[in-house]
Amino acid sequence: MGPTPPPPPARPPAPPRDPAAEAIGRLTRRAFLVGGVAAAAGLGGWAWLRTRGAAGGVPWPLRQVHRVNEWAGRGLYSGGRLAPEFDPARAGEPMVNGNHGRPAAADPAGWTLTVTQPGVGPRTFRQAETASLPRVEMTTELKCIEGWSQVVTWSGVRLADFVAAHGLGRRPDGTLYDYVALETADGAYYVGLDAPSALHPQTLLCDAMNGAPLTVAHGAPLRVVLTVKYGIKNIKWPTALRFQDELPADYWAERGYDWYSGL
């Protein structure tokens, strides 16, 4: 028998537990758990939003936000606030973007604008009937919802003057109808305007651009021009105008854009 084996060496003392390392471990687990849940909730919300049914071409929650933004925009709106005017020397020809509703040929003599409102039969106006109103010329910046803009000199008569001169647009109690609907002859293009924007002092029934009569491409014989809306609301070749309290249909609002589109 050999000598008894030496006793096994004593185990080294356990290293002292590092309270800081333990604490950061706890904090890290908790924080990443909270963060993970928050991230999952965020992604879940995003997936929910992306898959909602469309209302006018966009997920309906975004359509609701458009309405909230409209409410904010109407709150911000002041009819006395005018878009800046520019030196007419800066004016140029804007791009022709919309051709919906464009007539085959210009027919100023045969052109009429039919105005209707509840309880009143349609009234038809010829272009010459707008000529007696004071003419307005303004050099303002047309803004396309695509992002480009162009300084243009517009001239014509104020829609507000036209409406007032013919006693249009008011309910029997004298207050204004909420909305104005405008439409081309073939119904291919149509826009809705809130009454304050339609009667803004820079909203024109326009028949001339940059010192020359409108061309057909730009809306001859008459188009609507506004400085408080994007170009999409500046309807060309309108032949019907309705005052109403129901929200009017709007071509681009049915295709994902904000109905109000106010600037």
């Binding site: 925009g73 911000l76 709106y77 002041s78 606030r81 005018l82 878009a83 800046p84 910046e141 803004k143 992002g147 803009s149 400085t227 408080v228 106010g262 600037l263």
Partner: peptide, 19 residues
Amino acid sequence: KPTQLWWLTSVLGGYQTAR
């Protein structure tokens, strides 16, 4: 809101500059 906030747009150099 370049019409309602035209003063802000002007201070920033105009609509296209602000863009």
